[in-house]
């Protein structure tokens, strides 16, 4: 057993339907330190969400194990909060109630009602959504929904924050704004983060390490790239930073030269 905070060991995943079976992930091993920000990048359909769901405990690995602080992950739980690819707020609850549902469940025994209310509001403020607390998900924009999803996940005080393309469906401006917010939150709270992304710039800007998956089926970890950029990082300063440019082109090379996207038959 490894000493890492979060340890993914020899994870394989094969989906079986009837007699047909597809091997999606092949021998994935990864050690993550506390407070690290890891990005997982790879072409569409290679198995990124599957890997994240295995860490979350929502999907069982076919073989292999995931350890968090030395304990085997075998079911989902609030210590591994997920921001889902499509936000998945509950549409019949208001913004406030969506976050409060999580807060009330996780801290019911340890905090008073007033404390829980205060904590819910604090997390909404953290993503600048306090003003819309009484709106329903249908009444707010995509970027706002994503922010509420992030607030809900942060409010659980998870050991590991799992982000599945959290900025995927957003326009460039909103995306940049949210990236800055997440960077700031990571800076102040020191969360351990696993983030899936399609976006090379996003990966380099936010991560300490970038995990690149090869094309499926049987996706493996093709390469792990260190991003030795000092924090706090400022997007405008980085545009001309040689280290940034080197990392960026390393990822691009991996994605577009060595693992060009092949449409599965």
């Amino acid at each position: 057993m490894s000493k890492a905070y979060l340890s993914i060991q020899q994870v394989d995943k094969t989906f079986t339907r009837g007699s047909a079976s597809t091997n999606v992930l092949k021998s994935i091993s990864l050690d993550v330190d506390k407070g690290e920000y890891i990005s997982i990048i790879g072409h569409s359909g290679c198995g990124k969400s599957t890997l994240l769901n295995i860490v979350a405990g929502l999907t069982d690995a076919t073989t292999g194990v995931v350890f968090l602080e030395g304990e085997v992950v075998d079911q989902p739980g609030p210590d591994r909060a997920v921001v889902f690819q499509n936000h998945s707020l509950l549409p019949w609850l208001t913004v406030y109630e969506n976050v409060a549902l999580a807060v009330d469940k996780v801290f019911r025994k340890t905090r008073s009602k007033a404390e829980r209310h205060e904590w819910t509001m604090r997390n909404l403020e953290l993503v600048h959504m306090g003003h819309a607390k009484d709106k329903r998900p249908a009444e707010i924009s995509g970027g706002m929904k994503q922010r509420v999803g992030i607030a809900r996940a942060l409010a659980m005080e998870p050991k590991v924050l799992l982000l599945d393309e959290p900025f995927g469906a957003l326009d460039a401006l909103t995306r940049a704004h949210l990236q800055d917010q997440v960077m700031q939150i990571h800076q102040t709270l020191g969360n351990t983060v696993l983030m899936i992304t399609h976006d090379v710039d996003e990966a380099v800007l936010l991560s300490d390490r970038i995990v690149m998956l090869t094309n499926g089926p049987s996706a493996r970890i093709g390469e792990v790239l260190d991003v030795p950029l000092a924090r706090p990082r400022r997007r405008l300063d980085l545009v001309t930073d040689p280290t940034y440019l080197r990392c960026r082109s390393a990822v691009l090379k991996f994605l577009y030269e060595r693992n060009r996207f092949v449409e599965a038959a």
């Binding site: 979350a56 405990g57 929502l58 079911q75 989902p76 739980g77 609030p78 591994r80 909060a81 997920v82 889902f84 499509n86 998945s88 509950l90 549902l101 999580a102 469940k105 996780v106 659980m156």
Partner: peptide, 19 residues
């Protein structure tokens, strides 16, 4: 998605039913 939210929060049977 909603089921997964409930699973991550570890809602119990009754909470899942009415929430």
């Amino acid at each position: 998605d909603y089921r997964n939210v409930a699973r991550v929060l570890r809602l119990n049977g009754f909470e899942y039913f009415h929430r």
